[in-house]
């Protein structure tokens, strides 16, 4: 693509990025200003990941990048280069069996409107994997990056507790 700028060959205005999204290889031609959030939603049509603020202040867009939870809104899509991206759509078993955290959210009614829920769940899966679900206060703290305006926090706490216990019991 033409650059039209005078920085020389070092700089590109369009960037080719290869990555996997939910295990599927994806090749993207990106404007380097595009966010991972807008790319998964508008280009890959994986709309389970939500835009709640677009400023890193709510957690609704939480996805996993190489196994770590990040905010897709503050992740330039070019940072997905050669990475594995996991969104809420890729969390359940391929046979449709919900992930234990998803099941726990259903069991504990850990949601109301559901808009923050994909981000909460992606965050909770990582929280348990990180070893940050040891007790109630730790769960609350390590999920505080995910706002829930409906106020489902008691249910979310119970769900993560349930899923962490299930994970620990293997």
């Amino acid at each position: 693509m033409s650059t039209g700028i005078k920085h020389g060959a070092l700089f590109a205005t369009t960037v080719e990025v290869a990555c996997t999204v939910n295990g599927r290889p994806v090749l993207l031609l990106l404007d380097p200003r595009e966010s991972l959030l807008d790319v998964v939603r508008e280009r890959l049509e994986l709309t389970g990941t939500k835009k709640g603020c677009d400023q890193g202040q709510c957690g609704a867009c939480t996805v996993h990048l190489d196994g770590r939870r990040v905010l897709a809104c503050l992740t330039p899509a070019v940072h997905a280069r050669d990475a594995d991206v996991l969104t809420i759509e890729g969390l359940a078993d391929p046979d449709g069996t919900p992930h234990p955290v998803q099941q726990a959210f259903i069991d504990q009614d850990a949601l109301q409107c559901g808009y923050c829920t994909p981000g909460q769940i992606m965050s909770a899966v990582a929280c348990i994997a990180e070893g940050h679900a040891g007790d109630d206060d730790q769960i609350r703290e390590y999920l505080s990056g995910n706002l829930c305006r409906c106020g489902a926090y008691p249910g979310i706490l119970a769900a993560v507790r349930q899923a962490a216990r299930a994970t620990a019991e293997g």
């Binding site: 890193g56 990048l65 770590r68 939870r69 905010l71 503050l74 992740t75 929280c127 990056g145």
Partner: peptide, 9 residues
């Protein structure tokens, strides 16, 4: 500082 998601970035 911030949240775990932001600390990961």
């Amino acid at each position: 500082a911030a949240s775990q998601q932001l600390r990961n970035s």
